[in-house]
């Protein structure tokens, strides 16, 4: 029983981090209808930038974190301007294909700069694990969860209450109306990419801190893809709840199914459940149902 609770708690912590990265996906998708498949690479880049600043410059963590955020905004803006703006008006599937190319390119660049070596993250959080009595959360996960939850809450507050957030929602709801209200839709597109990149880069730092970093860590992006499709592509609540579901599920499968099949089930479980849920709810758990009257 103890081990079950322990695994569920670990799953919630992992899920919180997934939720943050999923939020990055959703922010971009809601505003621009583009599914950014380079998200995993954005994440890796965030981890590497933070890592480099920490280890090469011996900077304190908050500084490295701030610099990573700056990088995320620059990356978001540059990608929007150079890669996506020329594609406005092209079929959405082409744009999604281009984000795959973008991911591969980013990965290549990261190979060249940081080489494929596996590294462990410098100590940024106090190493004591959190004792809950019924369960123990390792330090990395615990602090990672705090960071992820804080970031998620801040993003949601921005989205709900700030002027730019309201403008983003207006654009997501109706681009033409937003434009005629004096909202710069192009500016909002760029802003969504910036926020999306920031969310994934913070996620990258957290995951890098837990698992160590290498250019391959972007593969987590694929797990997160399962999260957002599960939760519904355009739902922020769906991203967070989907993250928790996938996190818990993965850890449970790791505990109960992996020993039976000799390992590996952990990584397949989210997709298995994904298929099941999509068969019942094709728009995901919280996705917007698009009804067309003919």
């Amino acid at each position: 029983m103890d081990i079950l609770i322990q695994v569920i708690v670990t799953g919630i912590a992992t899920g919180g981090v997934y939720g943050l990265i999923a939020l990055g996906f959703v922010l971009i998708y809601k505003a621009t209808s583009v599914l950014n498949l380079a998200m995993g690479e954005f994440m890796t880049l965030g981890a590497f930038v933070c890592f480099t600043v920490l280890s090469q410059l011996d900077a304190p963590f908050y500084l490295a974190f701030a610099l990573t955020l700056v990088c995320a905004f620059i990356l978001g803006a540059v990608v929007e301007r150079l890669v996506l703006k020329p594609l406005i008006g092209e079929p959405i599937i082409s744009v999604i294909m281009v984000t795959i190319g973008l991911g591969i390119t980013l990965r290549g660049i990261m190979y060249m700069i940081w080489t494929p070596t596996f590294r462990s993250f410098p100590q940024i959080f106090p190493p004591e694990p959190l004792q809950l009595g019924f369960a123990v959360i390792p330090s990395g996960l615990w602090w990672g969860l705090i960071l992820a939850v804080a970031a998620t809450v801040i993003f949601i507050l921005i989205f709900k209450f700030s002027r730019i957030g309201v403008a983003m929602r207006a654009t997501a709801n109706d681009q033409q109306a937003a434009l005629s209200m004096g909202i710069s839709v192009r500016g909002i597109f760029a802003m969504s990419w910036c926020f999306g990149a920031a969310a994934s880069m913070i996620g990258g730092i957290v995951i890098g801190n837990i698992n160590g970093i290498s250019v391959y860590m972007g593969d987590v992006g694929l797990q997160v893809l399962a999260v957002i499709i599960l939760g519904g592509l355009d739902s922020i609540a769906g991203a967070i709840i989907g993250g928790l579901i996938v996190g818990i599920l993965q850890n449970l499968t790791g505990l109960y199914i992996d020993p039976l099949v000799g390992g590996g089930a952990k990584n397949v479980a989210p997709y298995f459940i994904l298929v099941l849920i999509l068969m019942i709810r094709p728009y995901g758990l919280f996705g917007k149902r698009i009804i067309e009257r003919v």
């Binding site: 004096g182 839709v185 192009r186």
Partner: peptide
């Protein structure tokens, strides 16, 4: 002008 300036 850019389109979002027009309403102003």
């Amino acid at each position: 002008l850019s389109p979002h300036k027009i309403p102003g």
